[in-house]
């Protein structure tokens, strides 16, 4: 088993603390390692982007153990997370690896069709509303990391709607869902919509786990 990156000096009242969902993604990448190692990227240096990187454990893990040759971009709305990601990456990887942090919403400042690997552990918990972006001193940051609207899909749906334009040809996305998001229904809708646009995908559930009262799944999307 590959070691989990250490996080140091993080304020878990402002930065989402690695939990079952984060660890599930680490397990996914450990399982996917042989597949990813033999995958033919369009570039010798694949661009790996994690949306809503939080503490940075997932990105750091993937850079350290799975795609060491990649260029990594981490995005987060939360300025505390932007600093946390840099610290977590630096304290585990040092001067190796290539990670950059962008403070932004999802992938809005990225040029189209350049992401080779996209990772997203979304705010998937169903809630009445999605919280507004808070000011840096706010105490709502953890809600922003968690809450996703009535079926928990408000934010994830935005990412799915632009996924084809975000990924490069043969780019791969890993996105986490909980059972209350009705992932199978989401996939059926996604496939129908994308087929209408003439976009081809290979979609597979690569991980399934009961975590406390939640049932979590991770889905792999390959853009053809």
């Amino acid at each position: 088993m590959l070691p989990t990156p250490l996080t140091e000096d993080l304020d878990f009242e402002k930065v989402y603390e690695p939990a079952e969902d984060s660890f599930l993604l680490l397990d996914v990448f450990e399982k996917e390692k042989p597949w990813l190692e033999s995958y033919k990227w369009s570039s010798d240096v694949p661009l790996v982007v994690e949306i809503g990187t939080g503490s940075g454990v997932v990105t750091t893990f993937v850079n350290q153990h799975i795609i060491p040759q990649g260029l990594f971009l981490a995005t987060d709305l939360n300025p505390h997370c932007c600093n946390a990601v840099l610290n977590t990456h630096k304290s585990n990887i040092g001067k190796k690896g290539n990670l950059q942090v962008l403070q932004c919403d999802l992938t809005t400042p990225l040029k189209r069709n350049q992401v080779d690997v996209l990772i997203f552990n979304p705010p998937y918990v169903p809630s009445e509303t999605v919280p507004e972006i808070a000011d840096p001193d706010s105490e709502d940051w953890l809600d922003i990391a968690l809450l996703g609207g009535p079926t928990g899909m408000d934010i994830t749906q935005k990412v799915l709607d632009s996924l084809y334009d975000t990924l490069s040809r043969n780019g791969v996305a890993y996105i986490l869902f909980c059972a209350r998001n009705h992932p199978q229904k989401v996939m059926d809708n996604f496939k129908a919509k994308e087929a209408q646009r003439g976009n081809e995908w290979e979609i597979e559930c690569v991980q399934h786990r009961k975590a406390g009262w939640e049932v979590l799944t991770v889905w792999r999307f390959i853009r053809r």
């Binding site: 709305l77 300025p79 932007c82 600093n83 840099l86 942090v101 962008l102 403070q103 932004c104 919403d105 809005t108 400042p109 507004e132 972006i133």
Partner: peptide, 15 residues
């Protein structure tokens, strides 16, 4: 700021 580029938009410009 402090090496971190900020691409957050004010609400009227956000997508």
């Amino acid at each position: 700021k402090d090496s971190i580029p900020n691409f957050l938009l004010p609400p009227h410009l956000a997508n």
